[in-house]
Design a binder for these strands. Structure first.
Lengths: 200, 200
DNA sequence: ATAAAAACATACTAGTTGGTATTTTTTATA
DNA sequence: TATAAAAAATACCAACTAGTATGTTTTTAT
Protein backbone atom coordinates (compact mmCIF):
# COMPACT_ATOMS: atom_id res chain seq x y z
CA UNK A 1 0.00 0.00 0.00
CA UNK A 2 2.83 2.34 0.86
CA UNK A 3 4.37 1.42 -2.48
CA UNK A 4 1.29 2.45 -4.40
CA UNK A 5 1.21 5.71 -2.49
CA UNK A 6 4.78 6.40 -3.39
CA UNK A 7 4.11 5.59 -7.01
CA UNK A 8 1.16 7.96 -7.11
CA UNK A 9 3.15 10.67 -5.40
CA UNK A 10 5.92 10.36 -7.96
CA UNK A 11 3.47 10.51 -10.83
CA UNK A 12 1.82 13.56 -9.30
CA UNK A 13 5.20 15.21 -8.97
CA UNK A 14 6.04 14.47 -12.59
CA UNK A 15 2.67 15.72 -13.86
CA UNK A 16 2.90 18.89 -11.78
CA UNK A 17 6.38 19.81 -13.00
CA UNK A 18 5.50 18.84 -16.55
CA UNK A 19 2.44 21.08 -16.52
CA UNK A 20 4.47 24.04 -15.33
CA UNK A 21 7.17 23.50 -17.93
CA UNK A 22 4.70 22.89 -20.77
CA UNK A 23 2.87 26.05 -19.76
CA UNK A 24 5.98 28.18 -19.56
CA UNK A 25 7.92 26.91 -22.54
CA UNK A 26 5.62 24.76 -24.60
CA UNK A 27 5.09 21.04 -24.96
CA UNK A 28 7.41 20.34 -27.86
CA UNK A 29 10.20 22.46 -26.45
CA UNK A 30 10.15 20.74 -23.08
CA UNK A 31 12.23 17.59 -22.99
CA UNK A 32 11.79 14.60 -20.72
CA UNK A 33 15.16 15.56 -19.28
CA UNK A 34 13.75 18.95 -18.35
CA UNK A 35 10.80 17.29 -16.63
CA UNK A 36 12.75 14.74 -14.61
CA UNK A 37 15.29 17.37 -13.65
CA UNK A 38 12.52 19.63 -12.33
CA UNK A 39 10.95 16.68 -10.52
CA UNK A 40 14.36 15.72 -9.13
CA UNK A 41 14.12 12.27 -10.65
CA UNK A 42 15.84 10.30 -13.37
CA UNK A 43 14.80 9.08 -16.75
CA UNK A 44 14.55 5.54 -15.47
CA UNK A 45 11.92 6.62 -12.96
CA UNK A 46 9.99 8.48 -15.61
CA UNK A 47 9.86 5.63 -18.09
CA UNK A 48 8.89 3.28 -15.31
CA UNK A 49 5.70 5.28 -14.82
CA UNK A 50 5.02 6.53 -18.33
CA UNK A 51 5.15 4.76 -21.64
CA UNK A 52 6.32 7.84 -23.55
CA UNK A 53 6.12 11.59 -23.78
CA UNK A 54 2.75 11.52 -25.51
CA UNK A 55 1.20 9.72 -22.56
CA UNK A 56 2.58 12.34 -20.20
CA UNK A 57 1.14 15.10 -22.38
CA UNK A 58 -2.26 13.47 -22.32
CA UNK A 59 -2.16 13.02 -18.56
CA UNK A 60 -1.18 16.66 -18.09
CA UNK A 61 -4.16 17.69 -20.20
CA UNK A 62 -6.47 15.31 -18.37
CA UNK A 63 -5.36 16.13 -14.83
CA UNK A 64 -4.14 19.71 -14.96
CA UNK A 65 -5.40 21.60 -17.99
CA UNK A 66 -8.90 20.18 -17.73
CA UNK A 67 -9.16 20.89 -14.01
CA UNK A 68 -8.01 24.44 -14.54
CA UNK A 69 -10.68 25.21 -17.10
CA UNK A 70 -13.24 23.30 -15.10
CA UNK A 71 -12.58 25.11 -11.82
CA UNK A 72 -12.13 28.53 -13.35
CA UNK A 73 -14.69 28.67 -16.13
CA UNK A 74 -17.16 25.81 -15.90
CA UNK A 75 -17.99 25.14 -12.26
CA UNK A 76 -18.91 28.78 -11.48
CA UNK A 77 -21.53 28.63 -14.22
CA UNK A 78 -23.69 26.27 -12.19
CA UNK A 79 -23.96 28.63 -9.25
CA UNK A 80 -27.43 29.79 -8.22
CA UNK A 81 -28.50 33.31 -9.10
CA UNK A 82 -29.20 35.53 -12.08
CA UNK A 83 -27.74 33.78 -15.16
CA UNK A 84 -26.71 37.06 -16.74
CA UNK A 85 -24.80 38.08 -13.63
CA UNK A 86 -23.14 34.68 -13.37
CA UNK A 87 -22.03 34.92 -16.97
CA UNK A 88 -20.54 38.36 -16.43
CA UNK A 89 -18.98 37.46 -13.14
CA UNK A 90 -17.37 34.26 -14.35
CA UNK A 91 -15.69 35.76 -17.41
CA UNK A 92 -14.74 39.07 -15.87
CA UNK A 93 -13.57 37.67 -12.54
CA UNK A 94 -11.44 35.10 -14.25
CA UNK A 95 -9.75 37.58 -16.56
CA UNK A 96 -9.24 40.10 -13.79
CA UNK A 97 -7.87 37.60 -11.30
CA UNK A 98 -5.05 36.35 -13.49
CA UNK A 99 -1.61 37.05 -12.05
CA UNK A 100 1.05 38.46 -14.36
CA UNK A 101 2.46 34.98 -14.84
CA UNK A 102 -0.82 33.71 -16.28
CA UNK A 103 -1.25 36.74 -18.50
CA UNK A 104 2.22 36.32 -19.88
CA UNK A 105 1.90 32.61 -20.54
CA UNK A 106 -1.64 32.60 -21.88
CA UNK A 107 -4.19 29.84 -21.53
CA UNK A 108 -2.68 26.37 -21.06
CA UNK A 109 -5.49 24.84 -23.09
CA UNK A 110 -5.17 27.35 -25.90
CA UNK A 111 -1.41 26.85 -25.95
CA UNK A 112 -1.89 23.12 -26.35
CA UNK A 113 -4.56 23.59 -29.00
CA UNK A 114 -2.41 25.82 -31.13
CA UNK A 115 0.79 23.89 -30.63
CA UNK A 116 -0.40 20.35 -31.14
CA UNK A 117 -4.06 20.66 -32.00
CA UNK A 118 -3.74 19.52 -35.56
CA UNK A 119 -2.72 16.05 -36.79
CA UNK A 120 -2.44 14.55 -33.32
CA UNK A 121 -5.75 12.79 -32.85
CA UNK A 122 -5.30 11.80 -29.21
CA UNK A 123 -4.60 15.40 -28.18
CA UNK A 124 -7.37 16.71 -30.38
CA UNK A 125 -10.05 14.66 -28.67
CA UNK A 126 -8.72 15.31 -25.16
CA UNK A 127 -8.80 19.05 -25.77
CA UNK A 128 -12.06 18.94 -27.67
CA UNK A 129 -13.66 17.24 -24.71
CA UNK A 130 -12.77 20.16 -22.47
CA UNK A 131 -14.14 22.68 -24.95
CA UNK A 132 -17.34 20.69 -25.38
CA UNK A 133 -17.90 20.49 -21.62
CA UNK A 134 -17.38 24.21 -21.33
CA UNK A 135 -19.71 24.91 -24.21
CA UNK A 136 -22.42 22.65 -22.80
CA UNK A 137 -22.26 24.38 -19.42
CA UNK A 138 -22.58 27.78 -21.08
CA UNK A 139 -25.54 26.66 -23.15
CA UNK A 140 -27.31 25.32 -20.07
CA UNK A 141 -26.85 28.61 -18.28
CA UNK A 142 -27.97 30.69 -21.28
CA UNK A 143 -31.05 28.53 -21.70
CA UNK A 144 -31.86 29.04 -18.06
CA UNK A 145 -31.48 32.76 -18.65
CA UNK A 146 -33.97 32.56 -21.48
CA UNK A 147 -36.46 30.65 -19.37
CA UNK A 148 -36.13 33.19 -16.59
CA UNK A 149 -36.64 36.02 -19.08
CA UNK A 150 -33.34 37.74 -18.44
CA UNK A 151 -31.77 36.73 -21.74
CA UNK A 152 -33.27 37.47 -25.15
CA UNK A 153 -35.28 34.59 -26.56
CA UNK A 154 -34.40 35.05 -30.20
CA UNK A 155 -30.70 34.27 -29.96
CA UNK A 156 -28.94 30.99 -30.43
CA UNK A 157 -27.48 29.78 -27.13
CA UNK A 158 -24.95 27.69 -29.00
CA UNK A 159 -23.79 30.65 -31.06
CA UNK A 160 -23.36 32.83 -27.99
CA UNK A 161 -21.47 30.09 -26.15
CA UNK A 162 -19.08 29.54 -29.03
CA UNK A 163 -18.53 33.25 -29.55
CA UNK A 164 -17.80 33.77 -25.86
CA UNK A 165 -15.30 30.91 -25.74
CA UNK A 166 -13.62 31.99 -28.97
CA UNK A 167 -13.09 35.54 -27.83
CA UNK A 168 -11.81 34.43 -24.45
CA UNK A 169 -9.29 31.99 -25.87
CA UNK A 170 -8.31 34.47 -28.57
CA UNK A 171 -7.48 37.25 -26.15
CA UNK A 172 -5.48 34.90 -23.93
CA UNK A 173 -3.16 34.37 -26.87
CA UNK A 174 -3.04 37.96 -28.05
CA UNK A 175 -2.31 39.26 -24.55
CA UNK A 176 0.99 37.36 -24.66
CA UNK A 177 2.29 39.84 -27.20
CA UNK A 178 1.88 42.82 -24.93
CA UNK A 179 3.63 44.06 -21.84
CA UNK A 180 0.66 45.81 -20.30
CA UNK A 181 -3.04 45.17 -19.76
CA UNK A 182 -4.44 47.70 -22.24
CA UNK A 183 -5.51 45.08 -24.73
CA UNK A 184 -7.05 43.05 -21.92
CA UNK A 185 -9.07 46.03 -20.73
CA UNK A 186 -10.29 46.61 -24.25
CA UNK A 187 -11.35 42.99 -24.41
CA UNK A 188 -13.21 43.45 -21.11
CA UNK A 189 -15.04 46.48 -22.51
CA UNK A 190 -15.92 44.49 -25.58
CA UNK A 191 -17.15 41.60 -23.48
CA UNK A 192 -19.32 43.80 -21.27
CA UNK A 193 -20.82 45.39 -24.36
CA UNK A 194 -21.51 41.97 -25.82
CA UNK A 195 -23.13 40.64 -22.66
CA UNK A 196 -25.30 43.73 -22.24
CA UNK A 197 -26.71 43.18 -25.69
CA UNK A 198 -27.88 39.73 -24.71
CA UNK A 199 -30.06 41.02 -21.88
CA UNK A 200 -33.79 40.71 -22.38
CA UNK B 1 22.46 41.87 -61.41
CA UNK B 2 21.64 38.36 -62.44
CA UNK B 3 23.31 37.21 -59.24
CA UNK B 4 21.10 39.36 -57.07
CA UNK B 5 18.05 38.04 -58.84
CA UNK B 6 19.17 34.48 -58.24
CA UNK B 7 19.82 35.25 -54.59
CA UNK B 8 16.38 36.76 -54.16
CA UNK B 9 14.77 33.82 -55.89
CA UNK B 10 16.50 31.37 -53.59
CA UNK B 11 15.46 33.34 -50.52
CA UNK B 12 11.90 33.47 -51.78
CA UNK B 13 11.97 29.73 -52.28
CA UNK B 14 13.28 29.19 -48.77
CA UNK B 15 10.72 31.53 -47.20
CA UNK B 16 7.88 29.95 -49.13
CA UNK B 17 8.75 26.40 -48.13
CA UNK B 18 9.47 27.48 -44.56
CA UNK B 19 6.09 29.17 -44.28
CA UNK B 20 4.30 26.05 -45.46
CA UNK B 21 6.20 23.80 -43.08
CA UNK B 22 5.82 26.16 -40.12
CA UNK B 23 2.12 26.36 -40.87
CA UNK B 24 1.65 22.63 -41.17
CA UNK B 25 3.86 21.38 -38.39
CA UNK B 26 4.88 24.33 -36.27
CA UNK B 27 7.96 26.51 -36.06
CA UNK B 28 9.84 24.67 -33.35
CA UNK B 29 9.14 21.27 -34.84
CA UNK B 30 10.41 22.23 -38.27
CA UNK B 31 14.15 21.83 -38.66
CA UNK B 32 16.42 23.69 -41.03
CA UNK B 33 17.00 20.33 -42.66
CA UNK B 34 13.27 20.04 -43.32
CA UNK B 35 13.27 23.49 -44.90
CA UNK B 36 16.27 23.01 -47.19
CA UNK B 37 15.03 19.59 -48.19
CA UNK B 38 11.67 21.05 -49.20
CA UNK B 39 13.42 23.88 -51.06
CA UNK B 40 15.74 21.35 -52.71
CA UNK B 41 18.81 23.11 -51.37
CA UNK B 42 21.54 22.39 -48.86
CA UNK B 43 22.41 23.74 -45.46
CA UNK B 44 25.31 25.65 -46.92
CA UNK B 45 22.97 27.55 -49.18
CA UNK B 46 20.62 28.31 -46.32
CA UNK B 47 23.28 29.66 -43.98
CA UNK B 48 24.70 31.71 -46.81
CA UNK B 49 21.43 33.64 -46.96
CA UNK B 50 20.29 33.54 -43.35
CA UNK B 51 22.17 34.10 -40.15
CA UNK B 52 20.13 31.58 -38.17
CA UNK B 53 16.73 29.99 -37.74
CA UNK B 54 15.37 32.94 -35.79
CA UNK B 55 16.04 35.27 -38.71
CA UNK B 56 14.15 32.93 -41.02
CA UNK B 57 11.22 32.84 -38.62
CA UNK B 58 11.11 36.62 -38.52
CA UNK B 59 11.27 36.88 -42.29
CA UNK B 60 8.47 34.35 -42.68
CA UNK B 61 6.33 36.43 -40.32
CA UNK B 62 7.26 39.64 -42.09
CA UNK B 63 6.78 38.42 -45.65
CA UNK B 64 4.18 35.69 -45.45
CA UNK B 65 2.14 35.82 -42.25
CA UNK B 66 1.80 39.58 -42.35
CA UNK B 67 0.79 39.63 -46.00
CA UNK B 68 -1.78 36.94 -45.42
CA UNK B 69 -3.52 38.86 -42.65
CA UNK B 70 -3.14 42.09 -44.56
CA UNK B 71 -4.65 40.81 -47.79
CA UNK B 72 -7.39 38.78 -46.17
CA UNK B 73 -8.48 40.87 -43.21
CA UNK B 74 -7.08 44.40 -43.40
CA UNK B 75 -7.12 45.58 -47.00
CA UNK B 76 -10.82 44.75 -47.57
CA UNK B 77 -11.69 47.04 -44.66
CA UNK B 78 -10.70 50.11 -46.65
CA UNK B 79 -13.14 49.40 -49.46
CA UNK B 80 -15.80 51.97 -50.23
CA UNK B 81 -19.36 51.27 -49.13
CA UNK B 82 -21.44 50.76 -46.03
CA UNK B 83 -19.02 50.15 -43.12
CA UNK B 84 -21.37 47.66 -41.50
CA UNK B 85 -21.61 45.63 -44.68
CA UNK B 86 -17.85 45.73 -45.17
CA UNK B 87 -17.31 44.48 -41.64
CA UNK B 88 -19.72 41.61 -42.15
CA UNK B 89 -18.43 40.76 -45.57
CA UNK B 90 -14.77 40.76 -44.58
CA UNK B 91 -15.13 38.47 -41.59
CA UNK B 92 -17.74 36.15 -43.06
CA UNK B 93 -16.16 35.90 -46.50
CA UNK B 94 -12.81 35.11 -45.02
CA UNK B 95 -14.09 32.38 -42.74
CA UNK B 96 -16.28 30.89 -45.45
CA UNK B 97 -13.59 30.93 -48.10
CA UNK B 98 -11.04 28.90 -46.16
CA UNK B 99 -10.20 25.58 -47.78
CA UNK B 100 -10.09 22.48 -45.60
CA UNK B 101 -6.32 22.80 -45.35
CA UNK B 102 -6.60 26.24 -43.75
CA UNK B 103 -9.34 25.16 -41.39
CA UNK B 104 -7.29 22.20 -40.23
CA UNK B 105 -4.10 24.17 -39.73
CA UNK B 106 -5.62 27.27 -38.18
CA UNK B 107 -4.36 30.82 -38.46
CA UNK B 108 -0.62 31.09 -39.18
CA UNK B 109 -0.41 34.21 -37.04
CA UNK B 110 -2.28 32.67 -34.15
CA UNK B 111 -0.14 29.55 -34.37
CA UNK B 112 2.98 31.67 -34.11
CA UNK B 113 1.53 33.73 -31.27
CA UNK B 114 0.71 30.69 -29.20
CA UNK B 115 3.84 28.77 -30.00
CA UNK B 116 6.46 31.41 -29.56
CA UNK B 117 4.57 34.44 -28.37
CA UNK B 118 6.02 34.65 -24.91
CA UNK B 119 9.62 35.31 -23.91
CA UNK B 120 10.83 35.83 -27.48
CA UNK B 121 10.84 39.60 -27.83
CA UNK B 122 11.65 39.80 -31.52
CA UNK B 123 8.73 37.57 -32.46
CA UNK B 124 6.44 39.32 -30.01
CA UNK B 125 6.91 42.71 -31.61
CA UNK B 126 6.69 41.38 -35.17
CA UNK B 127 3.39 39.70 -34.39
CA UNK B 128 2.13 42.57 -32.28
CA UNK B 129 2.71 44.88 -35.21
CA UNK B 130 0.37 42.84 -37.38
CA UNK B 131 -2.31 42.79 -34.71
CA UNK B 132 -1.98 46.54 -34.16
CA UNK B 133 -2.31 47.26 -37.88
CA UNK B 134 -5.40 45.10 -38.05
CA UNK B 135 -6.88 46.73 -34.98
CA UNK B 136 -6.21 50.23 -36.31
CA UNK B 137 -7.89 49.43 -39.63
CA UNK B 138 -10.95 48.10 -37.81
CA UNK B 139 -11.15 51.15 -35.59
CA UNK B 140 -10.98 53.44 -38.61
CA UNK B 141 -13.83 51.60 -40.28
CA UNK B 142 -15.97 51.51 -37.14
CA UNK B 143 -15.43 55.22 -36.59
CA UNK B 144 -16.47 55.87 -40.16
CA UNK B 145 -19.59 53.80 -39.47
CA UNK B 146 -20.36 55.97 -36.47
CA UNK B 147 -19.93 59.15 -38.49
CA UNK B 148 -22.20 57.80 -41.17
CA UNK B 149 -24.80 56.88 -38.54
CA UNK B 150 -24.86 53.18 -39.33
CA UNK B 151 -23.03 52.10 -36.18
CA UNK B 152 -24.14 52.97 -32.66
CA UNK B 153 -22.42 56.03 -31.23
CA UNK B 154 -22.18 54.89 -27.63
CA UNK B 155 -19.82 51.96 -28.16
CA UNK B 156 -16.06 51.88 -27.95
CA UNK B 157 -14.55 51.27 -31.38
CA UNK B 158 -11.41 49.91 -29.75
CA UNK B 159 -13.38 47.44 -27.66
CA UNK B 160 -15.32 46.19 -30.68
CA UNK B 161 -12.16 45.85 -32.74
CA UNK B 162 -10.37 43.86 -30.04
CA UNK B 163 -13.39 41.66 -29.41
CA UNK B 164 -13.77 40.90 -33.12
CA UNK B 165 -10.10 40.00 -33.50
CA UNK B 166 -10.07 37.89 -30.36
CA UNK B 167 -13.06 35.84 -31.39
CA UNK B 168 -11.71 35.36 -34.90
CA UNK B 169 -8.32 34.16 -33.73
CA UNK B 170 -9.89 32.08 -31.00
CA UNK B 171 -12.14 30.14 -33.36
CA UNK B 172 -9.29 29.52 -35.79
CA UNK B 173 -7.56 27.62 -33.03
CA UNK B 174 -10.61 25.81 -31.72
CA UNK B 175 -11.64 24.69 -35.20
CA UNK B 176 -8.45 22.65 -35.38
CA UNK B 177 -9.90 20.25 -32.84
CA UNK B 178 -12.90 19.34 -34.97
CA UNK B 179 -13.39 17.35 -38.13
CA UNK B 180 -16.40 19.24 -39.37
CA UNK B 181 -17.57 22.83 -39.70
CA UNK B 182 -20.30 22.80 -37.05
CA UNK B 183 -18.29 24.86 -34.59
CA UNK B 184 -17.37 27.27 -37.37
CA UNK B 185 -21.01 27.74 -38.32
CA UNK B 186 -21.86 28.42 -34.70
CA UNK B 187 -19.12 31.04 -34.62
CA UNK B 188 -20.58 32.59 -37.76
CA UNK B 189 -24.03 32.76 -36.13
CA UNK B 190 -22.45 34.35 -33.08
CA UNK B 191 -20.58 36.84 -35.21
CA UNK B 192 -23.68 37.85 -37.18
CA UNK B 193 -25.57 38.32 -33.94
CA UNK B 194 -22.76 40.44 -32.58
CA UNK B 195 -22.51 42.61 -35.67
CA UNK B 196 -26.28 43.15 -35.83
CA UNK B 197 -26.20 44.51 -32.33
CA UNK B 198 -23.74 47.18 -33.37
CA UNK B 199 -26.05 48.62 -35.99
CA UNK B 200 -27.43 52.06 -35.26
C1' DA C 1 41.12 35.83 -70.02
C1' DT C 2 41.41 36.16 -65.16
C1' DA C 3 40.74 37.20 -60.45
C1' DA C 4 37.59 38.14 -56.99
C1' DA C 5 33.32 37.44 -55.03
C1' DA C 6 29.00 35.42 -54.55
C1' DA C 7 26.16 31.10 -54.51
C1' DC C 8 25.88 26.72 -53.26
C1' DA C 9 27.49 21.82 -51.78
C1' DT C 10 29.80 18.51 -48.71
C1' DA C 11 31.21 16.96 -44.55
C1' DC C 12 31.41 17.72 -40.13
C1' DT C 13 30.77 19.13 -34.92
C1' DA C 14 29.02 19.34 -30.29
C1' DG C 15 25.00 19.02 -28.01
C1' DT C 16 20.18 17.36 -27.44
C1' DT C 17 16.30 14.36 -28.29
C1' DG C 18 13.12 10.36 -26.95
C1' DG C 19 13.71 6.03 -25.59
C1' DT C 20 16.03 1.44 -23.83
C1' DA C 21 18.80 -2.09 -21.25
C1' DT C 22 20.69 -3.01 -17.07
C1' DT C 23 21.64 -2.48 -12.39
C1' DT C 24 20.64 -0.91 -7.69
C1' DT C 25 17.47 0.27 -4.07
C1' DT C 26 13.21 0.09 -1.70
C1' DT C 27 9.06 -2.24 -0.27
C1' DA C 28 5.76 -6.12 0.54
C1' DT C 29 5.01 -10.72 1.76
C1' DA C 30 6.11 -15.72 2.93
C1' DT D 1 14.84 -13.16 7.26
C1' DA D 2 14.70 -14.66 2.50
C1' DT D 3 12.53 -13.52 -1.82
C1' DA D 4 9.90 -11.48 -5.30
C1' DA D 5 8.30 -7.39 -7.20
C1' DA D 6 8.06 -2.58 -7.72
C1' DA D 7 10.61 1.90 -7.87
C1' DA D 8 14.33 4.37 -9.16
C1' DA D 9 19.19 5.15 -10.84
C1' DT D 10 22.94 4.63 -14.22
C1' DA D 11 24.64 4.23 -18.49
C1' DC D 12 23.79 4.08 -22.88
C1' DC D 13 21.97 4.51 -27.97
C1' DA D 14 20.71 6.05 -32.63
C1' DA D 15 18.61 9.83 -34.63
C1' DC D 16 18.29 14.49 -34.87
C1' DT D 17 19.35 19.52 -33.77
C1' DA D 18 21.40 24.25 -35.09
C1' DG D 19 25.29 25.75 -36.76
C1' DT D 20 30.32 25.75 -38.91
C1' DA D 21 34.46 24.96 -41.80
C1' DT D 22 35.87 24.09 -46.02
C1' DG D 23 35.35 23.01 -50.20
C1' DT D 24 33.39 23.63 -55.43
C1' DT D 25 30.83 25.91 -58.90
C1' DT D 26 28.88 29.94 -60.93
C1' DT D 27 28.62 34.78 -61.75
C1' DT D 28 30.58 39.37 -62.15
C1' DA D 29 33.95 42.95 -62.71
C1' DT D 30 38.20 44.24 -64.74
Amino acid sequence: MQQELKSQLTKQQIVQEAFTLFYEKGFKTTSINDVVKAARLTKGAFYHHYKNKEQLGLEVIELKVRKRVYDGMILPLSDAGNPMEILEKTFLNRIKSFPFYDKQNGCPMNNFINEIGNYETAYQSALKHIVETWKAALITLINRGKNEKCIKQNISSEAVAVYLISAFEGIRGIRKLYNDDDILNQYISGLKLYLNQLKA
